[in-house]
Nucleic acid binder design. Structure first.
Lengths: 332, 332
DNA sequence: GTGAAAGCGCTAACAA
DNA sequence: TTGTTAGCGCTTTCAC
């Protein structure tokens, strides 16, 4: 593989000049420029990023930490992030919440990743790890808050609309399938509580199902949560699940209990992964603009790197009404 | 951030010695070794991979090309690959079939990726690109065949079992929703044809629905394919879809046509993504060991890199019978 | 057994 | 405007 020196020689210029035409970092006379470009083409020269990165002390490599890439939600976010990363000459690598934090940390530090997007609150990294990242000058974007920039879905308004919608349909006993811990400060959960209050509905503790350690938010935990909720005889007529996968599981549990959706229980998901519209019944859900989220994450990282500015942004969430919700009926 | 020179100084040895204790590349007396290790710990020294990679001419960085990471199928493969990559000090980056091949190619070459796993036949890279990869000594693992090592699911036996199973249930008109082009040499399709013949069933062209360019294998294309198949009045009583997503879409189309699954039409998917067991009815499908596939991919790359051996392996596929298939009934 | 020093390919002062 | 050169941090011969 040709190196910069080869190009310089072939073009009859210095290697610095080659650098300058490649990086557009200084004026080079049109004539030389042309000669250099010709040489590059001829030799099919490709700059060696490892060398460049060593010299510039940046890797042009970022990471995305996902809970479970098997959830289409994260997949779409990753796609959005990759899209703008690619446009800017960055690569994105995957990290899994279930992976080994120590190994990941070492990798991140040693490879000098330029930035990381934590899409999930389920973060394997300890505050010490985060500190190391900070010291290394890595741009951090967190779904929730505090460290570096923050970026996440703005659930509050959509959940407001949702509770109003359900309330208008006559629902007064609205459950919440959390998947997370009791003390969760998840915005979905806190918004749920707040909006219940706003619309004069009772936030009965029995209507709320927490997850169990290790916390999971899959169809399986949704199934388990609903199985836990139904026998409680709370008079529940509607539930909001932390995400669509959990909602799928909840629907299954409801059916297995001999009830139907939405006649007996209305079910609402969150995320709006593409499958929501193809299951039966189609799922009412809170639609997060996932690609947008991913794009924003990369943009924020880019800004943090280039302009040294940190940002706090929230992306919109919309209530999408489909077939899994309907009027409340009193069960005997 | 401390460098190797700092460590050397603190330990009172040369930087070469530090290298040797870190990489275990030469005998170093226990005494010095200990001093070096102490210094490393004390300075919290982390080797700079960019420098090391420059010197060793390998990036310890591999890629995985996926069709659509939003399909849990690919997500699980990526997870498997990442798992063994991490264990071996490699990072894996994502490439999307829909991405810009030119940009990707440049990236791959310039960053000196050590290997790439093409999980999908839908490959944006031209033979010229592939050639460049070859010349650069990049380990290539392809789902189908020919370039470098090959790795993919072994559909043939499972499809044999499937056709036998359906045939035993009285199905004689079995459709195929391909998503791909007419001339597809996809092993699922060719196995389907072969097994129809084996069990004495007719491979009516009208029972086969090709995809349309740009080929897609999502629930949407499954929906469209089934909508195309139903009006043909072929007497179809069972269909095999290229993957589970397409099967989901097919089920939706069947229902919208006023028919039911499996009473009127049996539906079979492929991949066994986790959602198959939580939709209604649970989907009969061909289960691919996805994590295994990902792990194998990384192992093959590692072997190709270290032992210069190439491999051709297929991972097992199992027929999983669930609720979406049942006895054939004569309609009309 | 250990260390000096010459790269790896590129960038970025600084000179010319 | 262009070229020289000293790094970037690590590996790896080759002397000692």
């Amino acid at each position: 593989m040709a190196t910069r020196a080869d190009v310089a020689q072939k073009a009859g210029v210095s290697s610095a000049t080659v650098s300058h035409v490649i990086n557009n970092t200084k004026y080079v006379s049109p004539e030389l420029k042309e000669r250099v470009e010709a040489a590059i083409k001829e030799l099919n020269y490709q700059p060696n990023m490892m060398a460049r990165n060593l010299a510039t002390r940046q890797s042009k490599h970022v990471g995305i930490l996902v809970n479970d890439i098997t959830n289409p939600y994260y997949g779409e976010i990753a796609q959005g992030m990759e899209e703008v990363a690619q446009k800017n000459g960055y690569m994105v690598s995957l990290f899994f919440a279930a992976g080994n934090a120590e190994d990941y940390c070492k990798n991140i530090l040693q490879r000098k990743l330029d930035g990381i997007f934590f899409t999930t609150t389920k973060n394997p990294f300890s505050p010490q790890h985060i500190n190391l990242f900070h010291e290394a000058g890595i741009a951090l974007v967190n779904a929730s808050a505090d460290l570096g920039s923050s970026l996440g879905p703005d659930y509050a308004m959509a959940i407001d609309s949702l509770i109003k919608y359900l309330s208008d349909l006559g629902h007064t006993r609205i459950g919440f399938l959390s998947g997370l811990s009791t003390i969760s400060q998840d915005l979905r959960f806190t918004s749920y509580l707040k909006m219940l209050e706003k619309y004069g509905l009772e936030a009965d503790r029995a209507l709320i199902v927490d997850g169990e350690f290790p916390y999971e938010t899959t169809h399986r935990s949704g199934y388990a949560a609903m199985q836990a909720l139904l026998p409680r005889e709370t008079g529940v007529t509607a539930v909001l699940a932390l995400n669509d996968l959990m909602a799928f599981g909840a629907i299954k549990a409801i059916r297995e209990a001999g009830l139907s959706v939405p006649q007996d229980v209305s079910v609402v998901g969150c995320d709006d992964i593409f499958l929501t519209e193809c299951i039966d019944p189609p799922l009412t859900t809170l639609c997060i603009r996932k690609k947008e989220l991913g794009r924003q994450a990369m943009n924020i990282i880019l800004n943090e790197l280039n302009e040294k500015t940190t940002a706090n942004v929230m992306v919109g969430v919309d209530l999408i009404i489909r077939g899994s919700t309907g009027p409340a009926v009193r069960r005997g």
